[in-house]
Every structure is written in structure tokens, then in C-alpha cells.
């Protein structure tokens, strides 16, 4: 819940920054700047609110680090790309934001899925063991 709220605040900040930047850019606009808030909103606030409402466990520490870093990189990259577009310039190094950002997000998601499967497998094992011991006790 707390993580979702932080992401929501970041989304609002990005939306405000984008609107202010557009205000002073003499009618020149960039979708990257306008929609930079979408990364922390759709990639941060929404999934963490969902996890919190459904009572699901949050991913482990390492996948979380990767995921947060990925969303942060994509948000900064989107704002920076917007600045360049509004100025009318390009830089091939902006690709680094997208490559690193999406890779980290993917690592975070994969880490989360693997972590959940492991936990699921462990709890199944425990359940089976518990069932077996219950069965043995009844036979005795």
C-alpha cells in the first residue's frame, strides 16, 4: 500500500512537471513528456495497489530492487526524451534508458514469478508432509 502511494505521488509529480514544461515550450510538445507519468502510474501505483488489495505477497528484495530501478529508468528516460524532442535534438544514448529500463523491469517480474513458484512449491511440500503425518497418526 505504501509503495503504491509513493508511486502515485511520483506519477502526480511527473504529470505536473510535464504540464509545466509544455506550458513554457511555445506550443512544441512531446508525447514522451506528456505521458511520462504513465510509467510510475501503470508500472508502479497500479500493480502495487493490486497486490495490496488482493493480499498477495510482495516480491522478494532483489526482484523489487530490479523492478523499482527499471520503472525509475523508464520514467527518467521518458522525461529526458521529451526534453530533447521539444528542443529539437536527438542523442542515440537515450536508447540506454529504454534497454536498461525494460531489462530491469523484466528481471523484476521474472524474479517475482520464480520466487512465487518456489514459495508455492515449498508450501505444497509442507502440506503433503502434513497430510502424510496425519495419515500415519490415524493408522496408529
Amino acid at each position: 500500500m505504501k509503495t503504491g502511494l509513493v508511486y502515485l505521488c511520483i506519477s502526480l509529480l511527473c504529470a505536473w512537471f510535464g504540464a509545466m514544461y509544455e506550458q513554457f515550450s511555445h506550443g512544441v510538445f512531446s508525447y514522451y513528456m506528456i505521458y511520462s507519468f504513465a510509467f510510475p502510474l501503470a508500472g508502479g501505483a497500479l500493480p502495487f495497489f493490486l497486490l495490496s488489495f488482493r493480499g498477495g505477497r510482495t516480491p522478494g528484495r532483489l526482484p523489487l530492487h530490479f523492478y523499482h530501478s527499471g520503472v525509475a529508468t523508464l520514467t527518467v528516460g521518458s522525461i529526458f526524451q521529451g526534453v530533447l524532442e521539444i528542443y529539437g535534438t536527438t542523442n542515440p544514448l537515450t536508447r540506454v534508458y529504454w534497454i536498461v529500463g525494460w531489462s530491469f523491469v523484466l528481471c523484476g517480474i521474472v524474479g517475482f514469478v520464480i520466487g512465487r513458484r518456489r514459495k508455492f512449491a515449498v508450501s505444497k511440500k509442507k502440506e503433503k508432509a502434513a497430510d502424510a503425518s496425519r495419515h500415519e497418526n490415524r493408522e496408529v
Binding site: S69, A72, V76, F80, L84, T89, N91, L93
Partner: peptide, 12 residues
């Protein structure tokens, strides 16, 4: 991330 953004800004 901040260092990379500063570098890319200077480069641009």
C-alpha cells in the same frame, strides 16, 4: 542514473 543523465545532457 543521475550521473548518466548529466553526462548525456552535457553530450547533447
Amino acid at each position: 542514473l543521475a550521473a548518466f543523465t548529466v553526462y548525456i545532457s552535457l553530450d547533447t
